[in-house]
Design a protein around this nucleic acid. Sequence first.
DNA 1: CTAGCATTTTGATCTGCATCAATGTCACAC
DNA 2: GTGTGACATTGATGCAGATCAAAATGCTAG
Lengths: 238, 238
Amino acid sequence: MQPLAICPNAKVAVHCDQCRVRTLSVCGALDHDELLQLDRMSRPLICTARETLFEQDEPAEAVYNITSGSARLYKLLPDGRRQIVGFALPGDFLGLSMAEKNEFSADALTPLTACQFSRTAFSDFLDRSPHLMRRLHEQASHELTMAQDQMVILGRRTAEEKVAAFLIGLRKRWARLSTTSVTIPLPMTRQDIGDFLGLTVETVSRMLTRLAREKVILIVPDGVRLLDVAKIEALAES
Amino acid sequence: MQPLAICPNAKVAVHCDQCRVRTLSVCGALDHDELLQLDRMSRPLICTARETLFEQDEPAEAVYNITSGSARLYKLLPDGRRQIVGFALPGDFLGLSMAEKNEFSADALTPLTACQFSRTAFSDFLDRSPHLMRRLHEQASHELTMAQDQMVILGRRTAEEKVAAFLIGLRKRWARLSTTSVTIPLPMTRQDIGDFLGLTVETVSRMLTRLAREKVILIVPDGVRLLDVAKIEALAES
DNA sequence: CTAGCATTTTGATCTGCATCAATGTCACAC
DNA sequence: GTGTGACATTGATGCAGATCAAAATGCTAG
């Protein structure tokens, strides 16, 4: 799936002088008036690392479009167990379900900037823009597909396969955003990776170490470099 | 979330003489003309148990609305491991993502009937009916939420909790369809339940037996009766 | 009725990952 | 420099659930 993009001149969410809009990666198939209208209702948001964007079960107030930085999205069980349901990267949307309450909590992994829309205003705009509505539905469907793929990973794969699939999946998402760097940035902690994959910190660490020992990856500060792409893709194979 | 229902006089998908439509549980907020139009493009589908509705990665041709019976939705790994991503009950939609290819395979667990729409015709209709589009998006969002809840179950729960959560979740879905029967029908095999919860058949069987021994449930032909709802809800608690 | 097969249950054993515990590494403050 | 706290790695041990094996149950065909 292509990244949604309001501005034809930018791949991701950045300020675009040409279109005079700050809000990008929202939607193709919008005319210039619609773009400006949408832009007018957006407010900038700046967060420090670890800051909370919103919390599970609280009334959903806004729709967010990440312009830089990354966030983790998670659900908590009463006893403190945590399941990370996803990581949000630049260009990603949060709150597109337009539900009354947040389905999960979100907080920043790094300093983060975003475009923020009032949920009600965004909803009203949606009613007037079938194109955007349609595009949004495609986006939601795509997220559902990713969630189902994650179900396969959680339910039917070994620890090593989980870690490999995680790295490959992340690489693909980063690749859309930048020149294909050999290094995959990992802004999240090992604990976060574990809570995403249904593993403990120790197991994540051991699997990364094992892959590094076998020269499949190289562990670098804040990330991982893939040495043997074929091998790791074989491990992650769908 | 309320079941989608074209026909205000029926909760689920059944033939409705009053509205003269066969296609139900599609969507609120449609006027009568739209209903009839939608109905006109629907074709009935009748399947025997185990029959395949569609297969993963094949071109998506139709949108289905189950009118009776149930189906399992699953993904296969190259080595034969299987992850069931969901079960479809009467009233449920399949193929709403409108993607070009099927994201998973689906086959009937029991004899099954459905309303079938050509994907392209349905898509065209969608463009002319923003109400339906919006409703569909809500439905997709709801499915995403369910998938995320399933991620919590797969990643962060014990075998016993998984089985309990499965039963509670299924009870809730059946409850929407009929007078709240004390018995939860289980049209799927233990293997299917295992492939849904990331467990083996043996573990599923053992957990059900354990719950039955502790008088929390009663195992009956093709289903389960809940004896101690409080206890099983405590186990399944989110 | 019986034969054949799929499904479920039950038991014995094994193992992958969790758990527990300790040590190492880094960043930052003082 | 030294202390402190967060994060990561490594090792030893334990256990939940997988695997292996077999028996029980149920279903359909003849």
